[in-house]
Design a protein around this nucleic acid. Structure first.
Lengths: 237, 237
DNA sequence: AAGTGGTCTAGACCACCCT
DNA sequence: GGGTGGTCTAGACCACTTT
């Protein structure tokens, strides 16, 4: 799948960390050794290493080496653009997906339009995410009909990200996400089966493709009492 | 300040974007032109450009050029390791800071210890952040006494980040942040002057230095009805 | 002194977009 | 075909840590 050398090296090392071949607290082989091992130039090795550092897998020390960190890679990081399926797969949670509505020609609610992006009437996909059998999240996806013709129910059932990337060949690139905490609406209470006093963590996002076109506007509504997010952040100066 | 060439170039371009010399929708000069302009090699130019891309300032298109994006750099991104002062300064909000408590030999609450990091009794700094005169956030900082001897009140009043980085010369590197939504405690209600039905966004973090030592454990408690977070996220594959 | 990572270079080849 | 960005190389010099 991966064709670039530095990506392959990165993937290989991540796999070895996950497999426990490189454990937290250990030092990775030095750049020079990796140059040997992967038959690559040092800058290529460094590119792979910098990705590990960015993701919180490792930390580099001048004169010493590259330390494997013990940051746990799980639990809903809102700033990482990953699909729900990828996330729950990583934490080994049992989860299911109810497709509650697929409807064309739906206008995008005004609150979701952060910028003045015009968008024709969208395709709305409403899904409920259940973890361990309990309703956790409502996802309202308003999809750009100029990019995607229609959504087969099985795609929504499985994973929209998968459908967009693998079936349609779209390249998802970045998103801007706004997070707030709001009171549960009547629909929240009904669909998530919660009392009115449980607040909702609302994440509204605008997802763009590599060609910068808007793919979708999404509103994710999480029951706040079960919501957790873990972020790894590096200081930028 | 900046000594590295690629950092200087990056800073220079960011400054030009902020000054409106490069506007959203415009293309930046090509790599080749920037090589000329800054008298640098192309890889050095690319390093600076990749930083812009990571931060959401720009997007690169093969065969076309580097487009300036109109992502707004403001509002509390919880995943960016920035100090409160840096953030509010960027949004031009009037804000103040009440130092409510500075106390030594305080044990770190158990909920803040994500990993099994042992830490001697810490220095607790409790502050209240007010925006436009209204209490918004309570910050409990439990600082590692092995790294920092004591906290002068004026440092807490101004900015702990500033004090650590500029006065003590510490190099802050990364943090792991956990976010949840919880009920307001009695202390929250009293200090933030809110009724009991307003929930609290709680961000618990563990901040590390460049030498990987733990600098502090922090618990930030935001009144949820005023909390907003904006994140820029790129897809990693 | 030897080994580590951090930066920078000059050059190469490729894939892509436009005219 | 000429310009753009994406990848990769081989080599250089530096700052830092360890022996």
């Amino acid at each position: 799948m991966e064709v670039d050398k530095f990506r392959m090296i990165h993937q290989d090392i991540v796999a070895k960390i996950k497999a426990g071949k490189y454990k937290p607290g250990m030092y990775l082989p030095s750049d020079t050794k990796l140059v040997e091992q992967y038959q690559a130039s040092r800058e290529t090795i460094r590119k792979a290493m910098m990705m590990l550092v960015d993701e919180g897998y490792a930390q580099r020390f001048q004169g010493k080496g590259t330390l494997v960190l013990n940051y746990e890679h799980f639990a809903f990081p809102i700033s990482t653009l990953e699909s729900y399926r990828e996330l729950v797969a990583e934490i080994n949670l049992e989860s299911s997906n109810d497709v509650l509505r697929i409807k064309s020609d739906v206008p995008v609610p005004h609150v979701l339009l952060f910028e003045n992006d015009p968008l024709d009437d969208s395709i709305l996909v409403l899904r409920r995410r259940n973890v361990e059998g309990k309703p956790m999240v409502l996802d309202y996806d308003y999809i750009n009909p100029a990019v995607v013709d229609s959504i087969p129910k099985c795609a929504a059932q499985d994973s929209l990200f998968n459908y967009f990337e693998n079936d349609l060949g779209l390249k998802i690139d970045y998103a801007i996400k706004h997070m707030t905490v709001e009171k549960a609406t009547g629909e929240d209470q009904k669909l998530l089966m919660i009392p009115s006093n449980i607040p909702i963590v609302v994440v509204r996002s605008e997802t763009h493709l590599a060609n910068n076109a808007v793919l979708s506007f999404t509103e994710s509504r999480h029951r706040a009492d079960r919501f957790t997010s873990v972020e790894f952040s590096r200081r930028r100066k």
